[in-house]
Amino acid sequence: MSPVDEERLQKLEQALTEAHRARHIPSWQAGWVEDVMQEVRRVARRPPRACGNGDVVHLVWRAACFAAVLSIFLLVSFLMQSTVNVSEEGGLMAEDVEVGSLFFE
């Protein structure tokens, strides 16, 4: 795109930005507040358990985090343990070889 076209595109962008800022936002219709309040009253009448849904979600997230940390801990412990076992086995084999060489002597 040529610089002239780029300039024309910028003009278009600017016109769209101004159109957004000058947009007409409708005012509230009669009865809108009452409609919302009716639903709010309905929600307020629900048993408190339904309102405490956020607490349940929070608890689930906490449990998931705890489980994830525990899994990582167990995995790291397992890996460390298996590394130790491998090096110990290597050491035992090395001892065998040394003992063997003594017998040959």
Partner: peptide
């Protein structure tokens, strides 16, 4: 029209039109 608008007034008038909001 908006890309060809030469004056500020012409540009402002184009930005206020219904088409501007619809293109956006």
């Amino acid at each position: 029209q908006v890309m060809a608008a030469q004056s500020d007034e012409g540009f402002a008038e184009q930005a206020r039109r219904q088409e501007a909001s619809e293109v956006l």
